[in-house]
């Protein structure tokens, strides 16, 4: 579809597929525009805070936040390590378990029918509601583990449902081809269903990566001072102390962390799909 236009003739002598030329200045503009918008926004913020004389207990100017961020860096870094460990642990667990159960669920219609309602129940139950229970069960001496479990519960479902949809999305014509050559179940899985499901699994992983950050933050909020030392607890603590610049510094760190996770999963997706999947192709009209 995309390169169709460059290959209008079905010519057997035609040598190579024409590659669209890369327009570098468009790329530069694309990169500069969001940055400029961000800088403009920060400038307005800084200006309005001074101009309207907003108290730093309500809204500190960006410069104060950056100052605090640098001054508090050791504390922030420790908190980041804590939150990152929970987030990444939960994300990896969600990816592995989501793919495993997604494949298992779709391997037999009966298994799917039996367990799907419970997977949905798990999804629609707000995790915050069962967080205290999980913390009690796991024990206050292992808060880290209960937070991992809570973050995993938030991040798990998109992986599960996307894998399940992906496994069932294999092209029917290709299924016929595999049937024609009497492919075994394993080969059908390995060479057809898994590659067909890959774009869905990667889309699920991107959603899960964001959700595991949210899950970790919510878990820290609930666990409170009972042992959490992460960024979310730092926000709660700073709020209680009315140290708003410190609160914003922790928030800034959290956003940077969330964005890095998002970009890492996006690059993995691009790396795996760029040669064949529609979602990663540039459309030229």
């Amino acid at each position: 579809m995309t390169v169709e236009a460059t290959l209008s003739v079905d010519d057997r002598t035609e040598g190579q597929v024409a590659k669209p030329e890369r327009k570098s200045w468009t790329d530069i503009v694309d990169a500069v525009l969001p940055l400029a918008a961000g800088l403009f926004f920060l400038g307005m913020w800084e200006f309005l805070v001074y101009y309207l004389k907003v108290s730093k207990f309500i809204l500190p100017p960006p410069s104060a936040i950056v100052k605090t961020f640098i001054a508090e860096w050791p504390t922030i870094f420790v908190a980041l390590k804590y939150t990152a460990a929970v987030t990444i642990g939960a994300f990896v667990a969600a990816v592995v378990s989501g793919i495993f159960f997604g494949v298992l669920l779709t391997s037999h219609r009966r298994i799917e029918r039996t367990f799907w309602p419970y997977a949905v129940t798990m999804q629609v139950t707000p995790v915050v509601a069962i967080a205290p229970l999980v913390i009690i069960w796991v024990g206050l001496d292992r808060v880290w583990l209960s937070m991992l479990i809570l973050a995993w519960m938030v991040a798990f479902f998109p992986m599960l449902s996307n894998t399940a949809v992906g496994m069932n999305s294999a092209d029917h014509g290709l299924l016929n081809v595999f049937e024609l050559y009497e492919a075994s179940r394993w080969k059908r899985f390995r060479y057809l269903q898994l590659p067909s499901a890959l774009p869905y699994i990667l889309a699920g992983a991107r959603i899960s990566s964001g959700l595991s950050v949210i899950g970790a933050v919510v878990a820290e909020f609930v666990a409170g001072s009972g042992g959490s030392r992460g960024l979310a607890f730092m926000i709660v603590e700073s709020g209680t102390l009315l140290n708003i610049p410190r609160m914003f510094s922790a928030l800034l760190m959290l956003s940077i962390f969330g964005m890095s996770i998002w970009y890492i999963t996006a690059s993995v997706q691009r790396l795996l799909l760029h040669r064949w999947h529609e979602s990663e192709l540039k459309q030229e009209n």
Binding site: D171, N176, F178, K187, Y191
Partner: peptide
């Protein structure tokens, strides 16, 4: 000993032309 050509090309979009043609042998 049959080969089948469907109405649609039914190729694997993630595989090269070579790998698509290799598929029947891979399955054997």
């Amino acid at each position: 000993e049959v080969g089948f050509v469907f109405q649609e090309p039914t190729l694997m979009p993630w595989a090269t032309v070579f790998d698509n043609v290799y598929l029947p042998h891979r399955l054997k």
